[in-house]
Amino acid sequence: MLSKSQARAFFLGGTVVTFLIFIGLTVYSLAPGNDQTNSENITPQVVHGKELWEANNCMGCHSIMGEGAYYAPELTKVIDRRGEGMVKAILMSPVPWEPSGRKMVAYGMTEEEAEAMVEYFKWIGEIDLNGFDRIVSPLAKDKVQPTIND
């Protein structure tokens, strides 16, 4: 029958071993040779876009790479689907964008801010997502005529 000290050894041993493997895999997957993000394309404009993304908690409604709040559309490959002009117009609009009755906050961004957001979305759109991009943004691949509901 298992003793308490054996149970403790199982807990401590299992934890240490799996944590070390986890660290090893983290180092491996973040190594430059395994980069799937085209990190060399992260320009100051892309970083500014990420700052705006966080400062306005866009993830509180939208999702990106599948992460977010599922209240508003997934924005991976949004530029492919909707085009730069439309994305910029929505971000710069002084009145709330209201597709199918669901309101978005009117951010009234400047041209420079909206461009940074577009660059950020473009960079996201080029990331290799292990096949998820084809499931979540099929319109981007097929170039189907966009509707006004997105």
Binding site: A7, G14, I21, Y28, S29, L129
Partner: peptide, 21 residues
């Protein structure tokens, strides 16, 4: 023990489709 054995490496289910290996 079972929690950590499965849960630590189970973090990987958040990494499937976010742009990592």
């Amino acid at each position: 023990g079972l929690t950590f054995l499965s849960g630590i490496l189970g973090t990987g289910h958040h990494y499937y489709y976010i742009g990592v290996n």
